[in-house]
Design a binder for these strands. Structure first.
Lengths: 103, 103
DNA sequence: TGCAGTTATGTCAGATTTGACATATAATAT
DNA sequence: ATATTATATGTCAAATCTGACATAACTGCA
């Protein structure tokens, strides 16, 4: 992984786990981070397609505007669980989730 | 949702959230539970294909045998995060993850 | 410009998830 | 039958994630 890419992630708050701070991410770690970013991007896409604000989506999800923002921005404090729950809640089904993940 | 199906889930420890204990799950809630069960089943499938024991996989994942068992059994204490991390760690890629989810 | 609506970022107490452990049960071999 | 190895289940302290809140930054618009 290129160092500037890693710095970009670090800037976003990603802690590149403990001892391996200065080593490359494993493929699995990479995939997880990529996946979160992808899911967040698509959440935003769906929300915008529905012409909803983050606050409106937050209400539907019983969450908060700030958390929606974090999801869409790929904040490391957000779990894949929450991202997938949110996508389902805005009407994404298994099939489209699979497409999102595959891309 | 059929009552006996719901009892089956309840037996496994699923709490059918608070007030709606006696109501059907929302489609989103349903999808999440289904997804966890699917991911767990496939984790087991991959592990067995590799001829690994749960303990061996646990070591790779820096987890524990009991948590692997819980993942494979669809225990409600397991997150989608952990399931997906585990699948990646045993060699599943985005494409096959998408296939798993879609099925 | 100032204002209203929206999104971004930081913080934190409470909730959830975690690995680890003990121990039970199941499967397999000798 | 009884070791051995594998899997299942319950518990819990520590780690992580959550909604909520404050507040900053951005966006368009009168």
């Amino acid at each position: 992984m290129k160092t500037n890419k890693k710095n970009e992630l670090r800037k976003k708050g990603w802690r590149i786990g403990g001892v391996v701070e200065f080593l490359d991410l494993t493929p699995a770690e990479n995939s997880i981070i990529e996946l979160k970013l992808t899911l967040g991007r698509h959440l935003k896409k769906y929300r915008e397609k529905l012409h909803f604000s983050q606050s409106q989506v937050a209400k539907i999800l019983q969450s908060s505007q700030s958390r929606i923002a974090k999801m869409e921005k790929g904040d490391p404090s957000v779990s894949i669980d929450l991202l997938i729950k949110s996508l389902f809640a805005v009407g994404v089904n298994k099939k489209s989730l699979a497409q999102i993940i595959n891309c």
